[in-house]
Each structure stands twice: as C-alpha cells, then as structure tokens.
C-alpha cells in the first residue's frame, strides 16, 4: 500500500507550525495539586528520582565528610554498578545476584581505587585531587568502552517486575519503583543509625574529626578511609544497579548523575547524610512538579533552588559551619 492512499485531506489551510510551548503552566500545576491521582503519581515520581539521587549523593557526601575529598569520579561507580549488574543478570538471570554484583563489585573497585590512587593525594592541593579524579573519569569511561563496547546497552526489566502498575488513590505507581524507594530508605536508616550509634560509626566520625588522634589511639585510619571509600562506591554502584533495568547503559552515563548529586550535596550540606536525603527528595519533587508547572524551566528550578539555599545558608540545609 502506498502513502498516496493515506493522503486524505488537503482541505486544511497550510499553517505555519507553532513550535512554542508554554514556559509556565500554572493551571496544570494547580490542577494536579487538587487531584489525588495526580498528586500520588507525581509525588511517587519525585520520590523515585530523589531516592536514586540520594544513593549516589550519600556516597559522595560520606567520602567528603570523612576523607575531605571531593570525589569527582563518583559517577563512574554508578556506571560500573549498572554494568556489573547487567552482566551478572545476563549471566545468571537473577535480579538479586545482579544487585549484589553491582554493589560488591563497586565496593571492591572503590577500595582498590582509594588505596592505590586516592590515598596518595590526601594531603595534596584540591586541584591535584580534582585532576586525579577527572583523569579517572576518562580512564573508567574508556575501560567500560573497551570491555562492554561504545554502544548503549539495556539490562531489561526482570520478569518478576513486568507487571501492571499499582493504582493508589487513582495514581499510578510501578511496583519496581516501590522496591527502589524501599531499598534507598533502608540504606538511609541503616547509615543514619550505623554512623550515630554503632562503634564503627563512632570511630569513623572520630577519624573524620581528628584523624591524627584516632591514629594515635592505635586505630588503622587507612583501613577506615579505604572502608568509607568502598562504602561510598558501593552505594553509587547499588544506585547504578537499581537504575540498570530502566536506564540505558553507556560509557559516560555517570556524568549527568554526578552533576545532580553535587547539587544535592550542596543543598543538603556537604558531609551530611540527612542533608543528602532531604536534598535529593526536594530535588526529585522539584523535577516532578516543576515539569508540570514550568515545563521549560525544570532544570533551571533546581539551580534556582540551590542558589536560594546557598544565599540563605551557605553551608547547605544541614551543613555544619566550618570550625
């Protein structure tokens, strides 16, 4: 069949197309806020975006809090987590093993990276640390390209989650995203309690505050630093693994996540886990509701929010004043 049969109506006048969409659509936003279905869908949408961001950002903030290093190569761990998970899933078809591979693989990678490379630049200038990290962003991207190829990949959604979404108060919530939110919440609680209550947590906080004194007490600070870096890497890797079924995998995929994670840590306060959680959730909600009310300014809203926070509280929402 040819398209000539498809050319049906020439009667309409030739219109110049209107390519401009409204930059502000407050009616849509107000309409959503007054509808429970829309509220549920958009709030969970914000939580999903926020929780994945939280997992990446919390590792970043943890490493900064303890090691005082801004880890610009953090996005690479997110990328490796996704690739490890995809490979494990395609080999075993087990979702649990895929998540484990993503988290454990990046933890080991983080430990090696910290011990072999980062530990050499702790006392160095910030610029030197930044250069080392940036070099590894490029190296890690190339390593992924060599191992898995330059083309984008997809892990695929495990069959257990290939189900119809749930309808809660009229809103749509995919079951996989409930799992994702749940995992991130568990991580937040375990980290929060672990760092404030457990003995290891106290040692880590002490090492962050005064590494010389901790070392003098006979505690191996190198081990703590390596462990924290591995934990940070693992959390980013877990985020990558959780994102793998719904995001395409490509060398360099960590970069955009890294930028947003930085916004989260800056808003929440560098070094604060609660700050990372609140910052990530706020950013998720801004994206989710912002896309309705300000469709052409959603990204701008995030930065605007960051500017407002920085102007009113330069250390971030939960950041501590410098001593």
């Amino acid at each position: 069949m040819t398209v000539s049969a498809v050319f049906v109506s020439f009667s309409a006048p030739y219109q110049a197309h209107d390519n401009e969409s409204a930059s502000v659509d407050l009616d849509a936003l107000a309409g959503c806020l007054s509808s429970s279905a829309c509220l549920v869908t958009q709030t969970t949408s914000g939580l999903i975006i926020g929780m994945l961001l939280f997992l990446v950002a919390v590792g970043l903030t943890l490493i900064f809090g303890v090691l005082k290093v801004v880890n610009f190569s953090h996005g690479a761990f997110y990328m490796f987590g996704a690739y490890f998970a995809m490979t494990a899933y395609h080999l075993t078809e087990s979702f649990a093993l895929a998540m484990l591979a993503g988290a454990a693989g990046t933890a080991i990678l983080g430990l090696i990276f910290e011990r072999v490379f980062m530990s050499r630049v702790y006392g160095a200038d910030v610029l030197m640390q930044l250069l080392v990290c940036y070099a590894f962003v490029l190296i890690f991207d190339d390593v992924v390209r060599i191992i898995w190829g330059p083309e984008f990949k997809s892990m695929g959604m495990p069959s257990a989650f290939q189900v119809m979404p749930l309808f809660i108060a009229g809103g749509v919530v995919p079951p996989y995203y409930l799992l994702l939110i749940g995992v991130a919440l568990v991580v937040a609680i375990v980290l929060g309690i672990g760092l404030s209550r457990s003995r290891i947590g106290k040692v880590v906080r002490a090492a962050a505050h005064n590494p010389g004194m901790v070392s003098a007490l006979g505690i191996n600070t190198g081990l703590i630093y390596g462990g924290v870096f591995a934990l940070g890497g693992m959390l980013a890797g877990l985020a990558g693994a959780l994102a793998a079924p719904v995001r395409s995998l490509t060398p360099g995929m960590g970069f955009s996540v890294l930028i947003e994670s930085f916004i989260v840590t800056v808003i929440g306060g560098m070094g604060s886990i609660l700050g990372a959680l609140i910052g990530a959730l706020l950013l998720g909600l801004i994206r989710s509701f912002g896309s309705l009310g300000f469709p052409l300014f959603t990204e701008g809203l995030m930065y605007l929010f960051m500017v407002i926070v920085l102007v009113s509280k330069p250390t971030g929402l939960f950041g501590k004043e410098a001593a």
């Binding site: 849509a28 959503c32 958009q42 995203y177 994102a243 995001r247 996540v257 994206r287 989710s288 469709p295």
Partner: peptide, 13 residues
C-alpha cells in the same frame, strides 16, 4: 537525560 520518570507521568496525567 538519564531519567524520564517526570516526563512519563506528566504524559499519563
């Protein structure tokens, strides 16, 4: 863009 969740839900709305 890595995540399209807000776009998907906006279209569903």
């Amino acid at each position: 863009q890595p995540d399209y969740t807000e776009v998907v839900t906006k279209i569903l709305q």
